[in-house]
Each structure stands twice: as C-alpha cells, then as structure tokens.
Amino acid sequence: MRILSFIIIQLFIITISYGNESKTYEILKNLRCLVCQGQTISDSNSDFALTIKEVVTEKVNEGLSRKEIYYFLSDKYGDWILFNTPLKKNSYFLWFMPYILFILGGAILYIVIKKRTEKIK
C-alpha cells in the first residue's frame, strides 16, 4: 500500500525540488500578482509583488510548509491569488470534469467502433 501511494504521488509530481530557495521560487511562480494583468508574483516587478516575495521568503525560512503558506495567503487575499487552484467545493467541477469527459469520450468511441465492426460480421 505504501509503495502504491508512493508511486501515485510520484506520478503527479512534475519536478521534485529541494532546498528552501527552490521552494520559494516554486511558490512564487504559483501566485498571481494581484495588481498586474495575468502575471505571477515571480515575474512581476511591482511593489505588491516585491512585498509578497519578502513575505514568502520569510515564511519559508520560518519553516512553514507549502500548504501552510498557500493557506496563509489565500486567507488574506482570497483564492484569486493562487494559480495552483485548491481542490474545494467550488472547484470540484474544474478538477473532476475532465476525467469524466475523457471516460465518456472513450465510451462513445468504443461503442462506435464496436458497432461498426459488428456490422461487417
């Protein structure tokens, strides 16, 4: 079971980063600069972005986890700041619909192909 969960976690992690600094970078890349047009905090040079950069660096050095930092920020500024959309009641559709559609599409495809193959027999 432990191995299985390890594999599943591995599957969904695109890059594993280590060290405080890369953790900070990763978090900054997932935050929206609220005063800009569709930029991340990491890419923005606005005063707002500079403040958030400092806050995040501080929190990382304090030893807070990613989750805690995201929670802290979304508590203060709302979920709008998180590019990393949290799984909540209001985002179930967003996170699960694609899989449902994929399966549905597959089912339709299967039926179409099967129907046509049967006709030949």
Binding site: N30, R32, T40, W80, I81, L82, F83, N90, S91, L94
Partner: peptide, 8 residues
C-alpha cells in the same frame, strides 16, 4: 474568484 494557472 479563483485562478486557474499552469499547475492545473
């Protein structure tokens, strides 16, 4: 208001 970005 929620944001959907590259991680999604």
């Amino acid at each position: 208001k929620i944001s959907v970005g590259p991680p999604y």
